[in-house]
């Protein structure tokens, strides 16, 4: 596996334009218990050649997968900042892991309907919290390349 240097995004120093009115995800401290799992295709914008790249990360139990991804510089968007109002943090799970997850809310299902390349085991990273059982799992970021257009994919109408 290719070693990838990770940069820690300075979250505290993040410049904000709008006040935090809806906070996305719980605050889990750095000394919380952790598990390790692997993001597949952590940098989708680099195209097909990077699609099988893997990045193993240490995740804090209780935080959302979107939070884990952002702490490790995984290119998972979170356009609405983790409040289930977009579908840009779409993740694809293995079936056995997916089956064990807490069921998605109606709001999450509604947003998933708008996700690109939706699968039967898709969830939103901002709505799924890290659990002990995730130790060793692999979770995939959907490909987001021009292939969508080549394959004749039509974006969901507005």
């Amino acid at each position: 596996m290719q070693a990838i240097r990770t940069k820690i995004r300075p979250v505290a120093a993040k410049f904000r334009l709008n006040p935090v009115r809806h906070h996305g995800g719980p605050k889990i401290s750095a000394d919380a218990p952790t598990v390790q799992f692997t993001f597949v295709n952590p940098h989708p914008s680099q195209g097909k050649s990077a699609a099988d790249e893997k990045l193993t990360v240490t995740a804090r139990i209780g935080e959302t997968l979107l939070q884990t991804a952002h702490r490790h510089d995984v290119d998972l968007e979170g356009a609405c900042e983790g409040v289930c109002a977009c579908s840009t943090c779409h993740l694809i799970f293995d079936e056995d892991v997916f089956d064990e997850l807490e069921e998605a809310s109606e709001d999450e299902e509604d947003m998933l309907d708008m996700a690109f390349a939706l699968t039967a085991t898709s969830r939103l990273g901002c709505q799924v919290k890290v659990t002990e059982e995730m130790e060793g799992m692999e979770v995939r970021l959907p490909a987001a390349t021009r292939n969508f257009y080549v394959d004749g994919h039509i974006p969901q109408p507005h």
Partner: peptide
């Protein structure tokens, strides 16, 4: 004129 804000992610990458 179609798509949601997130649609622009794939579009911009293209």
């Amino acid at each position: 004129p179609s798509g949601i804000i997130g649609t622009n992610i794939v579009d911009a990458k293209d």
